[in-house]
Amino acid sequence: MGYSDKKQSRIWPLLFLFSAFILVMLIGILCSLKWGQSQVSWQTLFEAITYQGNDKAHLYIQTLRLPRAIMACLVGIQLALAGLLTQLTTKNPLASPHIFGINAGAALAVAVGLVAVPHFGNFGLIGFAFVGAALGALLVWSLAGTGNKQYVRLALAGITIHFLMSSLTEGFIIMNQQATDSMIFWLVGSLNQAAWTEVRLILPFFVGGVLLFSLMLPSLRMLLLDDEIAAGIGGRIHFVRGISILLVIVLAGSAVALCGPIGFVCLIVPHIARSLVGTNLTILGPLTALLGGVLLLYADFLSRFIAFPFESPVGIVTAAIGAPYFIYLARKQGGTR
């Protein structure tokens, strides 16, 4: 079998894999549009998504369920790519923006914004989230320093900053008694308030982040090598790592600002994708993004039925899935070492 035959034999399984997950995502979107607090018929659903009707049921799907499903896909893709970039940048398979202080920093900044400027718009909260995410990342990297033990110190510093900022966030929530319930709901991670306004706000960050990630794919391969080897072949490893961290801040910060710090999506999705296709970033990146959208879409769908007919934060579902998987990964990594 020649090289071209081997290459073609690998393409068909990958096409089937991507096609299967795209189909799963489309099915998830249909389920998200049809089932929830109020039932709708298939005919009503078809009329709503094709904009052939404008009664109450059609408007309910068009203005509430449809943007919520789209938001779940966009945020899931952003968080999954942010997790993959964090793991590549830190060379730590258990790393994620949530663990390394980026999500906690964004959450703290948003909580401060909600307390200090309660009537600030969502676009302003995104700005607060960026500042907080950058502050969290800066603190972690400054505490980790440089040297052979940097990646070990990154984990310790990240956990420390995460708990510090989480405690400060809880303090600001206590100070703002009037918005305690809504802020706690947001801190767990929720898509309940997603509407077309939020979709339009996050769309530029989503498009810009995904486009920059795609353009950086050739350079990101250097992060798979040791720093000495990458520098030896002429790679600008520090520049690539810096751009990667900025991209994580953009992807994770905008998602946290609008939907709260949804946990574990950043951590588990890259591992699932890596177990399916390996470490080839050309394939791993798109599959990670696709799986992130699928996971958060179905997690949001399941969250509607935890306390039916009342809504539950999607972070409850992702935590229920992610916590056991994180324990499994930690034990696996420990056993490997």
Rank of each mutant, 00 (worst) to 15 (best):
A319R: 04
F326Y: 04
V265D: 11
A72P: 09
S303V: 11
F185N: 14
I102R: 02
K332F: 03
I245G: 00
F305K: 07
L30A: 12
K149I: 11
S19C: 13
Q62W: 07
V117E: 06
G263Q: 11
V188I: 15
I283C: 00
G147Y: 01
V199T: 08
V248L: 00
S244W: 00
L139Q: 09
I27W: 08
K6D: 09
L139M: 13
L156S: 07
H162M: 15
G136D: 04
A137E: 02
G53V: 05
V40I: 15
I268H: 04
V250E: 01
V240I: 06
A133M: 08
L290E: 05
P324M: 10
Q177D: 14
R241G: 03
V199A: 03
F310H: 15
G76W: 04
Y328I: 12
S142P: 06
L215A: 07
G253S: 04
H119R: 13
M25F: 09
V117Q: 12
S167A: 15
D5I: 10
I77D: 02
A95G: 00
S214P: 03
G292V: 04
A230H: 01
A299N: 13
I306C: 11
L135P: 03
A320I: 14
Q150I: 05
L329A: 01
S254T: 13
I283V: 07
G285L: 04
G105H: 03
G101S: 05
F18D: 08
P204W: 04
A195K: 15
V199R: 11
G278F: 01
L79Y: 04
H271C: 00
A319H: 02
C259T: 15
I245V: 15
G28V: 10
S166A: 14
K56Y: 14
A106R: 09
V210P: 01
L258R: 08
R236F: 03
G124S: 08
L108H: 10
L164Y: 09
G232I: 09
N54W: 07
A57V: 12
S214I: 10
S312C: 15
G235K: 02
I102W: 01
V256A: 09
I61V: 15
G132K: 05
I61E: 04
A307Y: 14
I49H: 10
F308D: 06
G263Y: 10
W12L: 12
I249H: 02
T63Y: 14
G242F: 10
P67D: 12
S38P: 03
G334T: 00
W186T: 13
L297Y: 08
V140I: 06
A255K: 06
A323C: 09
T44I: 12
S275D: 03
A72F: 09
G263W: 03
A107H: 12
P286A: 01
S142I: 05
F18W: 10
L138I: 11
M183S: 14
A179C: 11
L30M: 13
L290H: 03
F128L: 11
T86G: 01
L302P: 07
H119Q: 15
L23A: 15
L217V: 14
R236A: 13
D5G: 06
F130T: 09
L203M: 10
H119C: 07
Q150M: 08
V248Q: 01
M1R: 11
N92R: 02
A299E: 10
G293M: 10
K34D: 02
I249T: 01
G189N: 12
S9L: 12
